[in-house]
Structure formats: C-alpha cells, structure tokens
C-alpha cells in the first residue's frame, strides 16, 4: 500500500507556486475578515497548527535531541528555516539573560512579489512564521513568544523576528502518580 510513487519531488515543485499560494491565502483572509488584526491572529493560529506537525518532521529528519539551553534552540530554529524554507536567517541581538534573540532575514521567499497596500500597513504578512515557532516549541515543552521587529515590507533593510523564551512546560503525569 505504499504511496512512494505519488510523492512530490521537492526539487521540482515550483517555489513561486508556494509563494503565490501563501499570498492568495493572506489576501483571501483580508477579504473575509476585513480586519487586519484579526488576520494577523488567524495567520498565527494557522502557523501554530503547522508547527505542531512540522516539528515531528524536523525531529525525524535531523534526529536531534532535546534542548537544554536557548542557544541550542536558536540553532535548531535556524536549521529548520534552512530545511523547510531554504533560507538561513542569522541569529543575533541576544538578550542579556540568554533567553531572547533575533532572527535576521536578508531575503524571505514568502514576500518576494509582495507590496503592502496602504490600508493594511499593520498587517503582519509573515505572521504564520511566528505561529509555526510557537507550535513547534510547545511540542518540545517550551513556551516561546515571537514577533516582528523589522519588516522589509514596511521599508526596513531586513526582516527581524524576535523570539523570547517564556517557560518550560511540564510533562504529563499519568493518573495516580505523584
């Protein structure tokens, strides 16, 4: 019952089709919700749902273990972007407590052909990425939050995604155990 024959060859799937699909999704959301804040929220939520699945693929591919320091986490997130989006953001601007850093994107495949219209300057076009990080980290018992500090779509030189560690989540304990 194998379906190997029907698999897509990642090298042959056109990346512009992907960019276009994402763009269509965002613009459809804008039409449906007519509210930029709501769209930002929906994008984050979709990303979250992707993240909780994508993390398994990441772990299966890389065979990586658990993180014990946020520096490991940062490197793994960076590797994730390389694997799934083909971009290598740089890690910089570490917070003094070692629990906060930025990912700097020189280029971003999601925004290649995008110009933000004037009425939605508050749109966080790539907010799906923030959701992916939250979902993926939550699955490995880490609560993080992330937000865009700079955005090339808004005239900044680079796109900067800030990631902050909130807390460790505890493992589930079976009923009847202390």
């Amino acid at each position: 019952m194998s379906r190997q024959g029907a698999r897509l060859d990642a090298k042959k799937v056109n990346s512009e089709l992907f960019t276009l699909t994402y763009g269509t999704l965002v613009s459809q959301l804008l039409k449906d919700y007519e509210n930029v804040d709501e769209v930002n929220k929906q994008l984050e939520r979709m990303g979250y749902n992707i993240g909780i699945r994508l993390i398994e693929d990441f772990l299966a591919r890389t065979g990586s273990g658990r993180c014990y320091d946020f520096k490991d986490t940062a490197e793994k997130i960076q590797a994730g972007f390389r694997i799934f989006l083909g971009v290598s953001p740089t890690i910089s601007n570490w917070g003094p407590g070692g629990d906060e850093f930025s990912l700097i994107f020189e280029s971003n495949p999601l925004t290649e052909f995008v110009e933000l219209p004037d009425h939605c300057l508050n749109l966080k076009y790539c907010n799906i990425l923030a959701g992916v990080l939250r979902g993926a980290c939550e699955m490995v018992q880490m609560e993080v939050t992330s937000w865009f500090v700079q955005d090339q779509l808004k005239g900044d030189n680079v796109t900067e995604l800030r990631v902050k560690f909130i807390k460790r989540l505890e493992d589930a304990i079976p009923a009847g155990e202390d």
């Binding site: 014990y68 807390k167 460790r168």
Partner: peptide, 17 residues
C-alpha cells in the same frame, strides 16, 4: 540559568551552559 523550586531544592530547569 532558569531556576525553579521543586522537591525542596532549587533546580536548574533550563539554560544549560
């Protein structure tokens, strides 16, 4: 290091370096 209080001890929960 992130510290938590559990089992009457202060334990390193994250930030291993």
């Amino acid at each position: 290091h992130k510290l938590v209080y559990q089992n009457k001890q202060i334990v390193v929960a994250f930030g291993q370096r």
